[in-house]
Design a protein around this nucleic acid. Structure first.
Lengths: 124, 124
DNA sequence: TACTTTTACTTTCTAAAAGTAACTTGTTAC
DNA sequence: GTAACAAGTTACTTTTAGAAAGTAAAAGTA
């Protein structure tokens, strides 16, 4: 055993890892963050969210809305109109993500400037 | 057409949606954030990261490290020791995620307190 | 010489998740 | 009775993730 290479332990902070995993479990995937962002601009109906997030399928939207509701990030209200209207809105917990999402989008802009924009691929 | 329901457009801010998608493309999935967090505590070798993130398989770790390197979030250094040593470290771009990850873990703690901790399931 | 250990992966195979296209339900308009 | 609209659901296919085992190179051990 090489003493020099193993004498200093590098801590990994399991608490941080657990917290990040908890957060990721809630907002992970391709669609949840976009859904939360569109809802941050106002309550929306199923069809309106579909129009905002152009490439989401009704199956995925339905599935992700259910999961977000289960985790208490959004709430669902049914109006007895003809045809029926269903409106989704952010809960207090959902709105508590706004600062994080602000950071995320800011970093996304930075990332596009420094990495995505500088290679031939992925400019889309 | 119902004039009342459609007179006020709810903006969706496509710029924000694109930026969030760019960011998510880079850090999305179950493993990338944990990898970046462990590396924020110091440069680490393949085996060390495996020990920190207990349930990651070598295949997924290898795959995600490659993707993180491709997106310039981490860098990889090979040392000509016996047996070979490979060390991974965060780049400047990778370190620029720290504020975002701080927000993420803080929110994760809040989420566990208010949601995960209050139901029988998912206490793990 | 042959076997074992270590580090850093890769390969193969199976299971889970995501995506696609068409279908359902209830009601009103034509 | 046919079409349209809102909000989904169902069946099927493809993609991605995960588990188990294998590989490579070099040094150490018997």
């Amino acid at each position: 055993m090489n003493t020099a290479s193993k004498s200093l332990k590098k801590p990994s902070c399991p608490k941080k890892l657990i917290a990040s995993r908890d957060a990721l479990d809630a907002i992970q995937g391709k669609w949840r963050v976009p859904i939360i962002i569109t809802l941050s601009f106002g309550d929306k109906r199923f069809g309106e969210i579909r129009k905002d997030i152009e490439d989401i399928s009704p199956k995925m939207l339905s599935q992700e809305l259910k999961e977000l509701e289960r985790n208490q990030l959004i709430s669902r209200k049914i109006y007895d109109t003809m045809p029926v209207t269903v409106e989704y809105s952010l809960t207090t917990l959902g709105r508590s993500l706004e600062k994080l999402l602000e950071e995320l989008t800011e970093w996304g802009v930075h990332f596009r400037k420094t990495v995505i924009g500088k290679k031939g691929e992925r400019v889309g």
